[in-house]
Design a protein around this nucleic acid. Sequence first.
RNA 1: GACCUUUUCGUCUAGUGGUUAGGACAUCGGCCUUUCACGCCGGUAACGGGGGUUCGAGUCCCCCAAAGGUCGCCA
Length: 488
Amino acid sequence: MSSEKVRTRFAPSPTGYMHVGNLRTALYAWLIARKNHGTFVLRIEDTDQERKIEGAVDLIYRTLEETGLDHDEGPDVGGDFGPYVQSERMAAGIYMKYAEELIEKGYAYRCFCTKERLDDLRKHCEENHEQTKYDRHCLSLSKEEIQKNLDAGIPYVIRQKMPDSGTTSFHDEVYGDIEVENSTMDDLILIKSDGYPTYNFANVVDDHLMGITHVVRGSEYLISTPKYNLLYDAFGWEKPHYVHVSPVMRDAQRKLSKRDGDASYADFINKGCLKDALLNYVALLGWNPGNDREIFTLPELIEAFDISGIGKSPAIFDEVKLRWLNSEYIRAMSQDEFLKHAMPFIKQAVKREDVNFDVIAAGLHKRTEYFSDVIPQLDFVDKLPEYSADLYINKKMKTDKENSLQALLLLKPELEKFEDWDHEKLYYKVVDIAEKAGINKKVLLWSMRVALSGKELTPGGGSDIAAIIGKEDSLRRIDKGIELLQQQ
RNA sequence: GACCUUUUCGUCUAGUGGUUAGGACAUCGGCCUUUCACGCCGGUAACGGGGGUUCGAGUCCCCCAAAGGUCGCCA
C-alpha cells in the first residue's frame, strides 16, 4: 500500500437523499484517501434509468461540500479519468466495448431470454426451495442462432459466465479471507437490455479505469465480490483492496433506512445537530481508534484513522449518544458562538425583540443537546402560560401558596424601585431583599421564578428570567401571580 | 431453502491464551446548585449455548442457536 498512489471513491446512486450509513461509507473512503495522501473520487452511479430523481446529484455535491468531504475528481470538478457519471460513460460506449471483449474471450454470452421465462424459472426454483439460478438456456446458442436473433432485433442482455467448479476466494481488509463455491454463483447480468450496464459490471470497469486502489462499500457486496474478481481476472486487471463495512442498524433487526425517518443527514442538521458531531459519531460507529478517545475533528480523524480499526459486526445507531456527543461540541463553544448557532431556533420560539438574548443564551447553553431543544424551553417568553397555583408549592424550596404570596408581595415594591435591571445585579438584589426580610432566599427565588415563567422548569432561575423578559413584563407577571395566589 | 457473515454490559466498543474483563453513552445514588440542567464523586450492568485443545480460553478448534446479508435487466 505504500508504493501505490491510493485512490478511493464514493459512488452513490442519486436517490435524492443522503443516508447516514452512506455518509459513513463516504467518510471512510475519504479518510483512507486523505490518510495516505491519495485521491478521493466522486462517481455517480445512475445506471438505473427508471429511478432517476431530479436534483439528487446536487444534494450529493452539497452534502459533501458541507461536511468537508471534498473530492479531488468528480463530475463537477473534472479529472483525468472522466466522465464521472456512469450514464455518460455508457453513452461513450465504454461498457459495451468491455462486455464484447468478454464475449470474445468466452467469459460472457448474450442471453435472449424473456422476462417471463426468467420469472417462471425463478418461481420454479423457489417452489423447490432451490437457489434461483439462470439455467444457461442461451449459453448453448449457436453462432447462427445468435446472429438470427440479433438481425431480428430481439432484445438481449449480456451475462457473465461463471466457472462450473472450484472455488473463488478473496481477501477483505476487514472481514479477512472469504471463499465461495463457484457452483453457487449465478450468471450475472452485465449489460441490461436497454444497453446500460448493471452495477455489477460498471463498478468493476470503472474502478479499474479510474485506478481505484481501495474499494469501500457496504457488506452487502461481500458475497458478490468473488464474481467481480473473476471479471478482473478475465480482463487481466489488477484487483483493488476491498474494505467492506458492516451495516448501520436502526435496531437489532432492521437496517437504518429512509423509511424509518430521521436517517438522513439533512434531518439531523435541521434538528440542530452539528455536522462535525454527526461525522464524529458516525466515524465511531464501527470504527475505533484503539484508545478511549471519542472526540475528533475531521483533521484529527485523518490522523487517527486506520482500516484495522474497522469492526465487522453491525452497529446500532444510538441517537442518545449522538445527542451527548453533539452537546459536548456545544458546550465547548463560546457563548457567542452558541448564540449564533442557536439564534435561528430561538427565533422560532421567541417573536418579541425586547428580550435579553445574551441571558437567554447563558441559560440555554448547558441545556442544549440539539439546537432544536431550545424551542420548548422558551415557550414562556412571549406570553406567560396559564399555570396552576400548585406550582408555588415546593417541598425542597420550602414554599407554599401562603409564603409565596408574601414573597411576591415583598418583591413587587422593591423591584419597582430597582432601576439597574442587570442580570447579576438583579440576583444580588433579590438575595439582599431576602436577607433584610429574614427569609430564605430560595423561597423568594422560587416563587419569583414561577410567577415570571409559569413553569416548573426553566433555563435559569428567578433573576435570570427577570433579566430576560425585562422590568415591565416582570412586574406585570408578578402582579398576575399575586392575583392568582389571592384567589386561593 | 442454499451460500456468506456476525455474536463482550441496554447501546457503541477495548480486549489477539494468564485482566479484579477496561472506557464511553444510558441508568441508579450522592455532592454542588436561584428550579432543571451542567459539573464532580460513586454504584449496577457483559463474554449467545454446548463440546473440545491447554496447566490455563472472551481470546484457538468443532457443533448448535440467534441475527444480518446475498440469491433482481436495484445499487
